[in-house]
Design a protein around this nucleic acid. Structure first.
Lengths: 128, 128
DNA sequence: TAATTTGTCAAGTGACAACTAAAGTATACA
DNA sequence: TGTATACTTTAGTTGTCACTTGACAAATTA
């Protein structure tokens, strides 16, 4: 249900990496996000260039909304959709975290190699 | 650089967002990445804490490797897996691109609102 | 009021993704 | 040599996902 924005007692936007990355893994959904990053748009206008039924587009929008990538609001009979930054921030943060973890490890290895006094029983043979 | 102990014809790592985000959308694969960001590891060692068969883990690793998130190398009978940064960079870049696009648009709107001389037939009513 | 536009909901279909089991291959070890 | 280890490969099962159809509802327009 795309309920709420009107009566919204419960938003169920679960910012978990499963949902966000799964949402981003679909080309149609990414196309929607690219369109929306140029400005808010109604559902039917979003659907125009997409070669599928309106119902399918609505389903994609539900996925995008439930993981915090899109925010919608219904006024009259028109539902307006726009980018929501929360999902993007969340995904970017997850990636950044792993990257810094890995790169910090590479840095530590670099230091070890620079002062080769201690013998490390294992851990950097793989560097070749 | 050690490369491809696998004899095979060049691996096909297609750095496309479909593959990368789909790969990141699975909890098991993210668990593998988290393990690997602490250091390289063999397939069977990676499989130990995961409650599934070794074959399943290998399939996940194939997915991760084909999209540039993991790099592997076989020596003897042991395949060693490690993080590859390419996939991470690619995903991070895609997200960053959309974010800046959207935020730049918000900035332009801010400027428009600051000097309210021109009449824009539509475009910022949604700001509420 | 009647017709049109814009979206919503439910059920069904086909494809694909994740997983398993089981048999096979190559390397290391006793 | 024989056995264990560390994958690899194939085929099959099961569930989920993207999409459609078709009926419906509410807001707008004629």
């Amino acid at each position: 249900m795309l309920e709420n924005a009107d009566s919204g007692p419960m938003e169920k936007k679960k910012l978990n990496p499963d949902r966000v990355f799964h949402a981003l893994g679909d080309p149609t959904r990414r196309a929607i996000l690219e369109r929306l990053s140029e400005g808010p748009m109604s559902v039917s206008r979003l659907a125009e260039p997409l070669e599928m039924t309106l119902a399918a587009v609505v389903q994609h929008l539900q996925v995008l909304e439930e993981c915090g990538l899109v925010q919608t609001e219904k006024l009259g009979r028109v539902r307006t959709c726009r980018i929501e930054s929360a999902g993007f921030s969340f995904a970017a943060q997850w990636i950044a975290d792993r990257r810094t973890l890995w790169e910090r490890r590479l840095d530590r290895l670099g230091e070890l190699l620079a002062e080769p006094e201690e013998d490390s029983p294992s851990g950097y043979e793989w560097l070749g």
